[in-house]
Design a protein around this nucleic acid. Structure first.
Lengths: 194, 194
DNA sequence: CCGTGGCGTAGACACCGTCTACTCGGCACT
DNA sequence: AGTGCCGAGTAGACGGTGTCTACGCCACGG
């Protein structure tokens, strides 16, 4: 009962999302997606002139899912900013590690049509949430909140990346990434108040 | 006069390094490397049973270059730890942005034979330099220096990655990454003393 | 002098992304 | 009712890729 006729365009994206989350980026060949969608290899071309555009559409779905996940985790946003940032960080890293294939795709700029109207921009609302929480949590005076937010985001991104690569387990010796998250937030927000 | 006969194995790596730094990861097809080395497409197979192993050898060269660059920047290591960390950060980001193709390759785990005996491990000495500098620069009590170093490295890595992707320019509005580096170090080392 | 082994060649195979010619079915219009 | 058209998907070709295998070739040792 899988949306048995939702139009080929949507169907291709759906198949692609499932494929990338289950088998990774390598499996996302144009022909394989077409095969799994039950159409010939030339069919996708009607809706996506190029392979990259199809992958971009799939990645966009990923950004939407990440946004939804974060929004769900944040809830009504009544908790204090620091707690919310912790939650956000956990949700972000959780998403990245639970959906490695999709997360990798989302940042593989060589696979994406970066001008496909908003893909880098798709991460922008999430970014604004961070700047907002960060200013509300308190910044050192004279610090541009956008810079601070960029650095914090980069930190989370780097952790996700290096963790997926195995380097962080190798170097830190830890099998958990919670301490890394805690250390990150303490660095950017100052020591935990009590 | 380009090492006109240094054995095919070394020659392939040399060609690959030049190719990836000049034209990026996409250009690193096995056949193209063979072509530029002036041999048939089957020749590399004698030295590198698979494409991934050749790419791994090229990436290893990248890690060596990064290590050399950092060592050169650090000099005799007599400056105070904080200044050295700044220098290290600048050198790291400088390398990543000056050699985008190579840097991308170095962390594209899908292109590398990660068990090619030490490739993730190739980043280990660099990592130890960071832990060392970090402990000498002073840590909050009760913080595992390996965790702190991992987080700091992840931050630099994330900045390099997101910057190359264009996201950080988009979000922070800055065309320079020096402020990002400064903010990073202030976050992880505390405010600049004066 | 002959064999033997390392080194590189050349062609096959399956797969990939793109392009193009084609078919087929429904719809509008005369 | 007949006809033209147009969207949607098919099928095959083309050049490219990584891998595998069979084959030359040359130098060196017996």
């Amino acid at each position: 009962m899988h949306e048995e006729d939702a139009g080929l365009r949507a169907r291709l994206i759906e198949v692609g999302v499932e494929l990338v989350t289950r088998e990774g980026t390598q499996a996302l060949s144009l022909r394989e997606i077409a095969r799994r969608a039950g159409v010939s290899h030339g069919a996708p071309r009607r809706y996506f002139p190029t392979h990259l555009e199809l992958l971009s559409a799939i990645a966009r779905e990923g950004f939407a899912a990440l946004g939804a996940e974060v929004a769900r985790a944040l809830g009504d946003g009544r908790a204090d900013p620091r707690a919310q940032l912790t939650t956000l960080g956990r949700a972000y890293l959780g998403f990245a590690l639970a959906n490695r294939g999709m997360y990798e795709l989302m940042f593989r700029h060589d696979l994406l049509e970066s001008n496909h109207l908003g893909l880098r921009e798709a991460s922008l609302p999430l970014f604004h949430v961070v700047t907002d929480l960060l200013t509300r949590a308190g910044l050192r005076p004279g610090v541009d909140p956008r810079i601070a937010a960029g650095v914090l985001w980069a930190n989370a991104h780097g952790i996700a990346q290096l963790w997926a690569w195995g380097s962080l387990q190798l170097t830190t010796g830890s099998a958990e990434l919670e301490p890394l998250l805690r250390a990150t937030l303490e660095a950017h927000l100052g020591p935990e108040p009590r």
